[in-house]
């Protein structure tokens, strides 16, 4: 109960922040919340199930392109958004059917290769996808019924709604029977199998849920900021959620949001001081894996906050 209150409290603060933040940070906050949904999705696979994927940009971009291409050709935005979700989950399922036959480093490389192939495909069929430059979405394409996603306030609340659903969804998942099985797979897959669980199915389900959230994030991101481009399918976008989750704390509900926000502003600040923002990402990766592999909230949980989900 206390933990539910904590999460609702965080969401309430975010809702209040809408009225307090100056315009620049206001846009950033909306961006962070949508990207946090991506991180939350990544966390389901990596943090809870122990699946270290290097190819999640594939699911993010699948959602973004499914939605973007549909609305760009005059599709109904609501349906396009739904298509983005389905695309994320379905692509994750297809990749999982193959990639989950491997584990550890092989799984990382296989997911990386699939994502890379997709990125290259976007570049190769540039006539259809807009290639590296991508395409922008018109105002009409970004209108979900009465909600105009080009409007900052609407955008903020849609992002908040999305991150709320994702966060409370994870909270429910973690406390469910399925959540317990996923954690068991992460901790010791062989033992879990000998308790009678089809661990392949469990992992596939986790990856699909993860892909669904990633697809939702990609889809909404495209609609909100009106742009769909090949860079979202590049390897950098597979690495980012890994960093966000590592930083906030893998296997914690609030970690992805915290990590996304911190990393976003870390890069934002560093790029105002130096042009070497990429080095900051690299240094963050190495520093985290060396000194704080459990991330901020994971470390807090180890130091006494044991109830933290």
């Amino acid at each position: 109960m206390r933990m539910l209150a904590l999460h609702l409290g965080v969401l309430a603060v975010l809702a209040a922040a809408q009225f307090l933040l100056p315009a620049y940070h206001h846009t950033n906050a909306a961006r962070i919340m949508v990207l946090a949904v991506y991180a939350i999705g990544y966390n389901i696979a990596f943090g809870y199930t122990g699946l270290l994927s290097l190819g999640h940009a594939l699911f993010f971009a699948a959602g973004m392109y499914a939605t973007g291409l549909l609305v760009d050709r005059g599709g109904e935005p609501w349906l396009a958004l739904l298509a983005g979700l389905v695309a994320g989950g379905a692509v994750a399922g297809a990749v999982g059917l193959l990639a989950l036959r491997t584990a550890g480093p092989a799984f990382m490389i296989v997911t990386l290769m699939f994502a890379q192939a997709f990125h290259l495909a976007i570049l190769y069929w540039g006539g259809f996808t807009g290639g590296d430059e991508g395409f922008t979405l018109s105002g009409a394409a970004r209108r979900l019924g009465p909600l105009d996603l080009a409007d900052p306030t609407t955008r903020y609340f849609v992002a908040l709604a999305l991150v709320s659903v994702a966060m409370l969804g994870t909270l429910a998942l973690v406390r469910s029977r399925l959540g317990r099985v996923l954690v068991a797979v992460r901790e010791n897959e062989e033992r879990t199998r000998m308790l009678g669980y089809d661990t392949f199915r469990a992992k596939l389900l986790a990856l699909m849920l993860s892909g669904l959230a990633s697809g939702a994030a990609g889809s909404t991101y495209g609609l909100m900021f009106g742009y769909v481009g090949g860079s979202f399918a590049a390897i950098q976008y597979s690495i980012l959620p890994l960093i966000w989750v590592l930083m906030g704390g893998a296997g914690t509900v609030l970690g992805p949001l915290l990590g996304t926000a911190l990393m976003f502003y870390l890069i934002d600040l560093s790029s105002s001081v130096t042009t070497a923002s990429q080095a900051v990402v690299g240094a963050a990766l190495i520093g985290l894996i060396l000194f704080a592999p459990r991330g901020i909230l994971g470390t807090l949980r180890e130091r006494g906050l044991r109830g933290l989900p």
């Binding site: 029977r177 317990r180 099985v181 068991a184 901790e187 010791n188 062989e190 033992r191 308790l195 009678g196």
Partner: peptide, 25 residues
């Protein structure tokens, strides 16, 4: 059911969760 030779409970889960995994199956 098979109880392992080398103790292979889930060390980072609570005792309750360990058994609950079996019960919910």
């Amino acid at each position: 059911a098979y109880a392992f030779q080398i103790t292979s409970v889930f060390p980072r889960l609570s005792v309750f969760d360990n058994v609950a995994l079996a019960v919910q199956r």
